[in-house]
Every structure is written in C-alpha cells, then in structure tokens.
Nucleic acid binder design. Structure first.
Lengths: 249, 249
DNA sequence: TCTCGTAGTCGTACCGTGTACCAACAACGC
DNA sequence: GCGTTGTTGGTACACGGTACGACTACGAGA
C-alpha cells in the first residue's frame, strides 16, 4: 500500500535508480563561503552551515571528515576564482606575471578573511592550476628552476603581504571599530607624541588630525593602484637583477 | 588572637604597607608568550595561562579586560624584540632599511605563530617605536610623506609575506605532518601530473621525488638568504624608480 | 582595638565550538 | 518479504571565553 508520503506527483518524487545524497560538497562549500563573505570567517561553524542548509549538524560529516577538510574545500573554491582564462593571458612575462598577481590580489581583497583563515589549508587542484599558470606566465624568461621558483616566491610574498594589509585597512573602515574606539586610539597616539620620543612620526603627521592626514599620506591613490605601483617597482628590480627585458611600451 | 596562618616568620609574611597584586601584566604576557613559543598559539588559553601561573582563571581578568587585550600585550612584547639599538643603526637608508626589515623577519621567524595570531592586535607603544625607527631609517632619502609611506609599505608587505610563507615551510618540516600524510600528498600530486594538465610543473620537478627536488629548487640557499635576496631585488627597484642612490660598496 | 571599605582572587555557571558515537530511516538487491 | 548499506541527525563531551558574585585580607578611620 502506498503511504501518504508516496502519493505526490512525479515532480515531487525523486527519480529512482539514483540514490543521491541530499547535498554536494560544492553546495556546502558555497554556503560556507557565503557566510564568510557576509559575516566573516568566525561565523562559519558546522552548526551554522547546517542550519543554513536545513540539515542536521552531523549530516555535514558525511560529506567531510573534519572542519579542516571543509576549509580546504573553501580554499579550492577561492583558488578557482584566481585562475585566468587562456584568452586573457598576455604574452610577455612582465605582463603575464602582473596579470596573475593582480587577479590574485583582487580575489584576496574580495574575500578579506581568506588569507587569514585559509592559511593552513592544504593545496587542492585549483591551487595546482594557479601554480601552473604562474609557471606558464614566466616561461619565456628562460630562467632555470631555482630562478623561476625564487621569482614566483618574491612576487607571491609581496602580493600576500600587501593583500593582508589592504584587507586590514578595509576592515578598519568598517563599523568594526566604533567612533569612540577611534577617538581613544587617537588620544593614545597624541600621548605618545607628547613624549617627544617620536620626532619623525610627528613630522610625518605634522600636527594634522590622523583621520584627515591618511588620504594625503596614501598619495590619494586607491589601494589597488598602490598595490600595482609596488608590484611594478618589484618587477623593475627583478628585470634589472636577473637581466630580463621589459615589455615594449 | 593570631591564627595559625599568621604564625610564620617575618620572611614568610609579605611586607606591610604595600598591598601589591600577585602578578603583573608583563609576567602574564611573558607566560603567554612562552606557551605560544613552545606549543603554538592555540595552546594559549586563559585557563592554561592561569594554571601555569598558579592562579585561578578569573584572576587574569583583574589585569586584563578581555583575551584580546592579553593578545595586545603579547604583540607589544614581540614588537619590543624588533626594536634596533641606536648603535647598530647604519647610516645609509639602504642599509638601515635592510637592518630594520631583517630584524623584523628574524623575530617573525622566531615566533612563527605571531604573524598569524597577532594580526588583529591594535598597535601599542613598541609598534609605534618600530614605526619611528622605520621612518628614521629612510629619513636621508628626502622622500616626501606619501613617498615615505609607500616605500615602508612595500618593504613591510614583502617582509610579512615572506615571513608568513617561511614560517609555513618551517612548520611543514615539523612532525605536524606525519609521514603518511606526506605520502598521500605526493600521490595526489602525481595523480594531477598524470592528467597532462600541468606541463610546466612537471618540467620543473622533472620526475624527481618532490622531497629530494625541493633543496635544488630553493637554490640550496637558507630561508634567510632567500629573504635577503628578494629584499635586495625590491630595494634595487626602489632605488631605480625613486632615483635614490645605492650605498658605496 | 574594632570595624568597614575595597583591592584582589577565584569558584561556578553559561553559552558556543568541533566532533565521537549511535539510533533511525530509506532505498536498493535479492 | 528480507537484510544491506547509504544517509541523516540527536545527544553528549571536552574545551573555549567570560559574566556574576562570593570570599579573603589588607589599610584606614574611629
């Protein structure tokens, strides 16, 4: 006898022959990513993801052995965003490396929590693809293996270091720090200045309110432009030291 | 009537007139630092610190409002290590900046958990002193405020990015990753290689066992030398772009 | 000398985390 | 019909930060 549960229309009944799980890893990772983007990585808990998905908490552990594995999934999803399609890949090493670095930076800024929270995630397939792309970018330099490795490391270090700090600046603008906390921080700064122990710092700010002074100090450039500027400086040094040619302009 | 507790010799009784707290913030921060250095930042919990100190957990909250404040204390202690004494301060901007950056790197490597765990700590007095020293280092370049700020940012970005990755490599050598996990990771890598999707990566490793290949790829240099090399490349670019003079050799 | 205010200490309890364990259920091959 | 196995999820535990408030003992005032 068919029970009430069975009596639905075909549309409501799952196709037979396929004993499919309710969820997929992609779906779970996407949910986790959405939570992290909206409320920060700290809000990503197993209970929270499960709740968002309308599942029991422990259900997630059928798809994933530990939370670390789930984090690895998140990392791989992010690394996918970093990949550059073949048709937008410049020919010259300088431009190609700049393109890869910039794309990486863009993604890291789009997910400011990522660099901090995915640090321990083991590399997945998309991380490998990103590395392959990086190698492809500088293949025409003719550098040997150690040289190649070193160059990529320098660029990666700068990109990550810059993204880390830029993400911080971005976060500082958010309501995370309330007006009163800023006020106190400034007063503390003034107390330090008053000791006379910081002549160079005092000269730099020149008595101005730090809140007004920052745009000037940053040269009225966007974070992204300042990143690009530093990258160009670094690659200048690279071309000079490693005797590589710069692209025609 | 004096109770049994009071009956000790003078030596065992605290001096009167001074109702001193049992602990100090410095002491608490030092304990927390020791735990972090020995077992990683994750091992630093309020209960653990208190236990180490022979105090009740909640006692710590008399000295500190929240754990975040305690972390700020740890950060300030670390920043103290970064400071360079006046007599070892080189004259030329290139050497001075290199000295500051290298000292920073050394400290970050000595405390590999620091960069990752103290990221959100607000700047304290020693952070301000470090900034002042950085300004002093490049004062003789004659750069204007935005130029100064930009230069320090580039160098800081590179130092932090490199230290972050170097600390990681260091951690990877630790027993954290057991033999079996490494074996699996390598097998996974080979699976990826077998797809033919990674020609450049395959060429780089040239069929060698990754465990043997790494020293060669790293150019048989120490982490520290590789850091210094990259820093020199960056500063080369800086001198070139900003029309600054290099130190006489 | 007695009393009282208060600086300093800490036990208990609450909520939130990751996850081990196990019971319940559903769909398939026979 | 059955047992098997894939899938779900409830409960419980250890551990985290910390709010609350009780307790202790010093120092000052009477």
């Amino acid at each position: 006898m068919a029970s009430v549960e069975d009596s639905g229309l075909i549309w409501t009944r799952p196709e037979p022959g396929t004993r499919r799980p309710k969820f997929t890893r992609d779906q779970i990772a996407a949910t986790a990513l959405a939570i992290a983007d909206a409320e920060g990585f700290a809000a990503v808990s197993m209970r929270r993801i499960a709740g968002e998905l309308g599942a029991g908490t422990m259900t997630l552990y059928y798809y994933v052995r530990t939370k670390d594995e789930l984090v690895a999934l998140m990392d791989d999803a992010i690394m996918a965003e970093v990949l550059i399609s073949a048709d937008e890949f410049p020919r010259h090493w300088y431009d190609a490396l700049t393109a890869v670095a910039t794309r990486t930076w863009d993604v890291l800024i789009r997910h400011p929590w990522a660099l901090h929270s995915l640090r321990n995630a083991p590399a997945g397939p998309n991380a490998a693809r990103h590395f392959e792309q990086s190698l492809a970018a500088i293949a025409d330099t003719g550098l040997d293996a150690p040289g190649t490795f070193a160059l990529l490391a320098w660029v990666d270090d700068y990109v990550h270091g810059n993204a880390l700090r830029s993400a911080e600046i971005r976060a500082a603008g958010e309501p995370a720090m309330d007006e009163q906390a800023i006020e106190e921080a400034i007063r503390f700064g003034q107390t330090l200045m008053a000791t006379g122990e910081f002549p160079h710092t005092a000269a730099l700010f020149d008595g101005a309110d730090p809140r007004d002074a920052f745009p000037t100090l940053l040269g009225d450039l966007s974070e992204r432009d300042r990143f690009l500027h530093g990258l160009a400086v670094l690659l200048d040094g690279v071309a000079h030291r490693l005797h590589l040619d710069l692209p025609p302009r």
